[in-house]
Amino acid sequence: MTQLILALTVGILFACGAYLVMRRGKIKLILGLGLFSHGVNLLLFGSGEMILGKPAIFNDKANFLGELATRSFADPLPQALILTAIVISFGITAFMIVLLNRRDTLLGSEIMENELAPGYDWLVYTDDDLEEQRQKQAESKGNGSSKISGGEPL
């Protein structure tokens, strides 16, 4: 039962995270990634048996063999993996936040969708675009020379 509930929860977290990542908006990307990383952590958590109230800690180090024999505590390995994952995802989130902030101060507005920064048009690969670009280049060559000759102080 617990597994089924966990599965449904993880599924919903994945769906919500994916939806937010794909929407436009200033922080939706970060929120989406946050939901996603929670989902992934819970997914990892589900690989061990979910046991209520029995952490993987020996109460008495001297007599640990007795506890080991029953093996009634939670699986420590997924926990160790998740611990690493939490910390790393925080590092990435923090960096993303700073990066988005930086982009915002640089451009004054968001460019995420269909808009390319000026001067970066060549990033678009389409046959028509390339053809257009060639024409533009040819034109600008003509214009450029006229600009130089016209712009020079007489």
């Binding site: 977290l13 995270g17 589900g46």
Partner: peptide
Amino acid sequence: AGVVGFVLV
């Protein structure tokens, strides 16, 4: 994506 998460668990 949600279905993937569900099935993966």
